[in-house]
Amino acid sequence: MKIPTLETDNLRLRPFSIIDTTAMHQIFNTKNVLKYFPGPRTLTVAQVQRSINRLLDHWQVKGYGLWALESRATGELVGRCGLQHITETDEVEIDFIVSPKFWGRGFATEAGQASLQYGFETLNQSLIVGIVHPENIASQRVLTKLGMQFAEETQYFGMAVQRFVKTHPEFLIN
């Protein structure tokens, strides 16, 4: 499958490449970026390479996945965003990680909106979830700005989380 490229006002959502490894390694290992994620708080270059390969494989298997976020102004890698399948619950989740260098500019919301639009309009998903750690207020704000509604406190990936949802009809109304 050819992974589509999307463009927003400030971002290009494009397929990951192995050449993104160094930049993603720096992003992942910047203080607080993985603070609310399960698993290790630092990643090796080899782990980041495997992660990129898994992201590309996800596209081939599911027909959707995570994009590399690139600044249209500078060409710099901003982070990642897109949709991924949660095997344990058979749900589609919106996921975003933005480098702290770009925090506060609305890039997660901008990329998230493009991802939701792709999920609902192109993939015809009926429901997309957002899973966020209860202390991750910034990501909760992004999900709310995307029109996602708090659904419940629950467990995912072995940790307590808040689950947000957005359904296809809501997307068409907003």
Rank of each mutant, 00 (worst) to 15 (best):
M148T: 13
L116K: 02
A111Y: 14
I97C: 03
G75A: 02
R41T: 00
T22V: 02
V165D: 13
G112Q: 10
H133P: 04
E93A: 15
T30C: 01
Q162L: 13
I18G: 08
L69Y: 04
G75K: 07
Y156W: 04
V98S: 09
G104R: 06
E121W: 02
Q84V: 11
V129C: 10
R50V: 00
F164S: 07
T122H: 13
E153T: 09
G75M: 06
S51I: 01
M1A: 07
F37P: 15
P134D: 10
I131W: 00
T154D: 06
I131L: 09
I27Y: 01
F37L: 14
L127K: 15
P4H: 06
A68L: 09
G39H: 02
G158R: 04
T87H: 06
G39M: 01
L34E: 00
L13R: 09
H58S: 10
W67L: 10
A114E: 06
E153G: 12
Q117A: 13
P100I: 00
L146D: 08
F37Q: 11
I52P: 13
I19H: 08
Q125C: 05
P15V: 05
K145N: 12
G119L: 05
G130F: 10
Q117W: 06
M159G: 10
V129E: 03
L66D: 03
G106S: 10
A23D: 05
L55H: 08
T30W: 00
M1S: 10
R80L: 13
A114F: 03
N136I: 00
L56Q: 06
T122G: 01
E121M: 14
A111C: 15
S126R: 07
I18H: 14
T44M: 04
Q155H: 15
Q155R: 12
K166P: 12
A160G: 07
Q125D: 03
S139D: 05
H168N: 13
H85W: 15
Y64V: 05
G147Y: 07
E135L: 03
R50A: 07
R54P: 03
R163C: 14
E88C: 11
A23E: 05
T122P: 15
R14D: 08
G75E: 05
Q113S: 15
E93M: 14
G158Q: 06
H168S: 15
H168M: 08
F16P: 12
T122W: 01
C81F: 11
Q162W: 12
A68P: 11
V129G: 06
D57V: 11
F120G: 11
L172T: 14
R80Q: 14
T22S: 02
Q125W: 01
G106A: 07
V48K: 02
F171P: 15
T8K: 09
V48S: 02
Q26D: 02
A108F: 05
V132G: 08
T42W: 00
N32S: 03
T42Y: 00
G79Q: 08
V78D: 04
T154L: 12
L56F: 03
V98M: 04
G82Q: 06
F16Y: 12
G75S: 04
L83R: 07
I173F: 10
A73V: 02
N10T: 13
V78K: 06
K145D: 09
A108I: 06
W67H: 14
L66Y: 04
I52H: 10
L66I: 08
H25P: 04
H133R: 00
H58R: 07
Q49F: 03
G158A: 03
F102M: 14
V33E: 02
Q125L: 11
Q47G: 02
T5R: 15
T8Y: 07
